[in-house]
Design a protein around this nucleic acid. Structure first.
Length: 196
DNA sequence: CAGCAGATTGACT
DNA sequence: GTCAATCTGCTGC
């Protein structure tokens, strides 16, 4: 297994990076609270020109400030006042690209995840708000370094072939007018099984 | 400063 | 299917 390097996150094509994050493994916590999961659904947010992005038109607020930081940083924000959503910031400092994680597949620490989710019998990590809860990601992780911090993303050889990838428009961005239907959402087909 | 919509979820009719 | 929960930031008075 290989920790993704800074150079991975500094690449310019955020849509291509969103596709390539599929099959990567996100690791959080430590000791008995260690949890990891395979990334199975992502969405790209392409910075200032993208009407669906928090950084559209160069918008800069306390909330989205870390989007303007260097690639390889975590952007965690509160959505609907309730849910923590986790994004990977990409590209060079000053370019607010980000990739939202919408779903992951539990790999290690499922008992811990279930506890964090309040013992629910539902899917543990099937949405952007639930996966952060299962992985123990909160607002205190906003701005943490993914290359050398409390959250890591690793390449473990879970290859996702193109035929197993479903590409489509992003969810919940109907307000974004002409950008609402861009094919920036990537997800692994449900029947795909990961084999290293 | 009030009102409202939002990269959502889960409980209830 | 409907709706409440409840924080951030934008719009308009």
């Amino acid at each position: 297994m290989t920790l993704l390097k800074r150079s991975f996150y500094l690449q310019e094509d955020v849509v291509d990076l969103a596709r390539r994050l599929l099959g990567m493994v996100i690791v959080t916590g430590s000791g008995s609270g260690r949890t990891s999961a395979i990334i199975t659904e992502t969405e790209a947010y392409a910075g200032e020109p993208d009407r669906a992005s928090h950084a559209f038109g160069g918008r800069r607020t306390p909330r989205n400030e870390v989007m303007y930081g260097i690639g390889g940083t975590a952007y965690v924000y509160l959505c609907y006042g309730i849910h923590n959503l986790f994004n990977v910031v990409t590209n060079a400092k000053g370019i607010p690209h980000a990739i939202l994680l919408r779903a992951v597949q539990p790999l290690e620490g499922m008992d811990t995840m279930r506890m964090r989710r309040g013992g629910t019998m539902r899917e543990l990590c099937a949405g952007p708000g639930t996966l952060t809860k299962a992985l123990g990601i909160g607002l205190h992780h906003n701005g943490v370094d993914l290359v050398n911090g409390a959250i890591k993303i690793e390449e473990r050889g879970f290859h996702v072939p193109d035929h197993a990838v479903i590409v489509g428009p992003r969810v919940g961005v109907e307000y974004a007018k002409q950008d609402a239907r861009l094919p920036y959402r990537f997800r692994v087909a449900k029947d795909h099984s990961f084999a290293p």
